[in-house]
Nucleic acid binder design. Structure first.
Lengths: 165, 165
DNA sequence: TATTGTTATACTCTATAACTATA
DNA sequence: TATAGTTATAGAGTATAACAATA
């Protein structure tokens, strides 16, 4: 009996994880789609472009292409394309890197910063509305729980990296 | 002072929502990437293909193209493409719909069901490992919280649909 | 007329690999 | 040799619109 109970607990735990994942994925996907659609219809931009500008907004000194690539978790070729677009629209500039002539220092132009701040303010109201199903205490709770999960995921990746090395 | 406090609470609440969203999105994206990569390397398949087979596995009677499209939340043309592939590999079949000659009834073949079940079992172990940063009580808690959020998101969509009508 | 599904097309997002120019 | 960035290419994933067959 003890064995059977242990097995059914394992089964329950498995199904619990799957159900949790599917529900969480459904919520995230839905929110992401709303954000993507609103960014396109209201500002004519996309999530990666918004993300790139957000990274630059945090760094008044600017970032190299490689740093942008690392922070956005995409490979270099993609960053080149997005920066090309935004530079063409006058939102960012590639300045020479002071000490490394291979590299650039990408930064927001004044117009780019104004435009980003304008978008970010509206973006924030969308997020607030979308998460209004949770009260402040619940948001705090989930925020803490995801900190734990994030650590766990980072540890898994670290383990895997060491195995492959 | 009361006004200032109220304002700073609003600000805090906004930042809380944004930080929560960014952290949640980071976790979801990371998990999704792991799943995508493992599905490709271990089973030579993709997330939408896996998802389509999962929908069919739940419905022994099969589903029409339109029903698949609605459940997967993608437009019809995409479903045609995925069903074409899976039919070519003998995983699913398009049967005539009994009462509507415009429609099909797509269902898993026995081989398709065997293959899906095999994949699903392994997929479940990936999910369990990825979510192992939370204990059972925490998983239950998050599952419940996401039920609330899902309802809230559905309500928002409903409101919007009525506004546009 | 409205609906089911297909076709054709295009765009976003991403990864990989070969390339250049510096370091 | 190694690194920063670019270019070219390929593929996943998606949406849109025009179309044929049937309701």
């Amino acid at each position: 009996m003890a064995l059977v109970d242990a097995e059914s607990r394992v089964l329950d735990d498995h199904h619990q994880a799957i159900k949790l994942w599917l529900r969480m994925l459904a919520c995230t996907t839905r929110i992401e789609n709303v954000i993507r659609q609103k960014l396109r219809s209201e500002f004519g931009t996309t999530l990666p472009r918004f993300d790139l500008m957000a990274q630059l907004d945090r760094e008044s000194e600017g970032l190299s292409m490689g740093e942008l690539s690392a922070r956005m978790m995409v490979t270099g070729g993609n960053v080149t394309g997005i920066v090309d677009q935004l530079e063409g629209e006058g939102m960012v500039v590639r300045e020479d890197h002071p000490s490394d002539r291979r590299a650039y220092r990408v930064r927001l132009t004044p117009a780019g910063r104004r435009q980003f701040r304008r978008m970010a303010a509206v973006h924030e109201t969308w997020i607030v509305e979308l998460f209004d199903g949770w009260n402040a205490a619940q948001k705090t709770q989930v925020h803490g729980l995801f900190a734990t999960l994030k650590q766990h995921l980072a540890a898994l990746e670290e383990t895997k990296r060491q195995e492959s090395a």
